[in-house]
Simulated scan of single mutants.
Amino acid sequence: MPRTDPFQPADDPARAIARDLMDTATFASLAVIQPGRTAPSVTRIACTTDTQGVLVSLISQLSTHTAALEANPACALLLGEPGEKGDPLTHPRLTLHCTARFLDRSSPEHAALRARYLSLRPKAKLYVDFADFRFVRFQIADGLLNGGFGKAFLLKPSDLT
């Protein structure tokens, strides 16, 4: 019987590729379900990691994806981008199934996350303190790494830390 599961067991090289994609990401594609709709909506967000390696973003309350995440925090992120040469599908990419968790500005963690975010994304200084912007952390449920042709891995949260 032909193999129907496309995923290989997670190994150290796959974990390293996934972690590198997370650690070096400057942006991600964010998929959400808008309230009242059934089809996903995708947007690009800026992102980085906090000191524990958790993906975070700074997003405006005015964006439609914020309203979607408040109504349903289940979401997906796509990290990775095609290289300058070759078939775009041969370059590594990582899909993360997540739950979005907004960070309250009055929380003790806010100042430290703000400082880290600005150290990594200095242009955000222009809007980080606007009243409508908040940090969101993405709690990972699992990940799908496509490391190129024939290199698919299903990753657990523990594989990504």
Rank of each mutant, 00 (worst) to 15 (best):
D87T: 15
P9Y: 02
L103Y: 03
A31C: 13
Q34I: 06
F27H: 03
F153V: 12
D159S: 10
A152M: 05
P9A: 09
G148P: 15
P73F: 00
K123W: 01
T51Q: 05
H91N: 09
F138R: 12
A31K: 13
G36K: 13
V56A: 13
D159Q: 03
H110L: 05
P122K: 07
A68R: 06
V54E: 08
V136F: 07
R105Y: 01
F153L: 07
L30M: 11
S29Y: 11
Q34H: 09
E84I: 08
L79Q: 06
D159H: 10
D104Y: 02
E81H: 12
R93F: 05
E70V: 05
P92D: 07
S60R: 03
P40H: 07
R134L: 03
I17C: 12
N146A: 15
R37N: 10
A141V: 15
V42C: 15
D11M: 10
C98Q: 04
I45F: 01
E109Y: 10
R93I: 04
G36Q: 10
T48S: 11
T26I: 03
A67I: 02
S29K: 01
R101M: 08
R19V: 12
P13L: 04
D87L: 14
T99C: 11
T95N: 12
S107H: 02
L21N: 06
M22H: 00
F7D: 07
F135Y: 06
P157C: 08
I33W: 04
R134M: 01
A67Y: 01
S29T: 10
A100E: 01
L103Q: 06
L155K: 11
C47A: 06
T64G: 08
D104A: 09
A46V: 14
P13V: 13
L21K: 12
R3Y: 01
H97W: 02
D11S: 14
